[in-house]
């Protein structure tokens, strides 16, 4: 199975809010070309998009790896930002440390991580202050 795994890598620029989400748009296109169902594509791309936005607004950018095989789609988001001190609290709907300027851009409602969990089958967060954040999300096919 592993030799049939497709791997896609993206760098997520932390300096440019306007370009945030470009990787998710590309993944959406790739999955469409692979013939993945629209419902699954939507879940994957929303989860990845929220994660991408988080890396841009909270962590100064990062990278995204997407692994596709016959049974699942795995999204791994890695950044070297400030990390999340209290993951349980960060997972609560409405909890956000985003500054007001981010809110005026339409994000920072504290719904990103809960959305990512809701739209994927598994989500693991590894994070500690000063160590950055790695989020692994899996959607079963």
């Amino acid at each position: 199975m592993s030799e049939e795994t497709l791997c896609f890598h993206f760098d997520v620029d932390g300096d440019d809010f306007t370009s945030a989400g470009q990787a998710s748009v590309q993944v959406k296109k790739l999955l469409r070309e692979l013939g993945v169902s629209p419902e699954v594509i939507r879940r994957v791309s929303i989860a990845m998009y929220e994660g991408e936005i988080n890396m841009v607004i909270h962590a100064g950018g990062g990278k995204a790896d997407v692994l596709v095989d016959e049974t699942s789609i795995v999204i791994i988001l890695t950044d070297e930002g400030p990390g999340i001190p209290n993951i349980k609290q960060a997972m609560q709907e409405g909890y956000s440390t985003a500054p007001d300027n981010v809110r005026s851009l339409g994000f920072g409602a504290g719904m990103g991580l809960p959305n990512m969990k809701r739209y994927t089958d598994h989500m693991e967060i590894e994070s500690a202050p000063g160590k950055g954040t790695t989020i692994k999300m899996t959607v079963e096919l």
Binding site: G21, R42, A109
Partner: peptide
Amino acid sequence: MMSDVLAYVKDQAVLLTGLVNAQ
């Protein structure tokens, strides 16, 4: 709020908004 839009997938086909940016 784009995160609110992203939170409720219900096959909405139209978005009304006062927000203007690429996101």
